[in-house]
Amino acid sequence: MCSVCGCGEAQLVLDKDKPAGGHAHPHDHVHDHDHDHDHHHDHGPHHHDEGAIDYGQGPAGAHAPGVSQERMVAIERDILSKNDAYARENRRTLAAKGVFALNFVSSPGSGKTALLARTIEALKGRLAVSVIEGDQQTSNDAERIRATGAPAIQINTGKGCHLDAHMVGHAIETLDPEPNSTLFIENVGNLVCPAGFDLGEAHKVVVLSVTEGEDKPLKYPDMFVAADLLLLNKSDLLPHLDFDVGLCLANALRINPRLQTLVVSAKTGDGLAAFVAWIEASAARRAAALAKG
């Protein structure tokens, strides 16, 4: 049984060619939750299989005896407080290993996976990268990433529309990214829900493609507010479209004046050098900030 949460006996496979023997939580330290609630699971067993974690299962029950009259109890707790506690824990785990994590969010089809694969190639020999892939179903994306040589784990959210910090915490445990590396988290393709869920990342990176319309930042503002960097992808298609790059970036900056922006093409590699430089500079800045405490 998993020492982290009591989830059932299962096999996790990080790399199809090298199946991990038995249950693969690679270290056996006590999982130290120092937030004030029990680490208990009301979500039914989640299923670990072939480098994937499946959250397609529904909620289960909890029971406690006790007798009292009807009365009001003040709670005053943020609905997201549970997620945020897990996110803090993830952030602490990542900081302790010097891992720089980015959470990639976008609508489906913006080219996130292609962009990540290309970026991993560009970072080869400079920064070690591992990847957590989130999708409702299939491990196609994790396989595409593994083809680049980077370790990847797939989380299948089932009916879920976003990754949450608890799922990502388990994935980090399993993936066990090497010290001072970079972790890419590719969220479920959805420009709405992932905005509200902190995963413990250093930055959210929103990917938008030029086939989507300049007003996406105005239509889905939450995501553009939550992000620190906008990658405008598929710039190779611009000659064939009436897309106004300036208008799109102006819309994004109206929503979030602090947003940084880069125009890139995962297909031709245009603009990727700037993105790689951004990653290296941001990772170094974060490491320096952590070293200072």
Binding site: H43, P59, A64, R77, S81
Partner: peptide
């Protein structure tokens, strides 16, 4: 909603509610 229910159930257990 799962978080709302979790928070409520946790608080109810602490209060010994049925």
């Amino acid at each position: 909603t799962e978080s709302i229910v979790e928070i409520a159930v946790e608080a109810a257990q602490k209060e010994g509610a049925q």
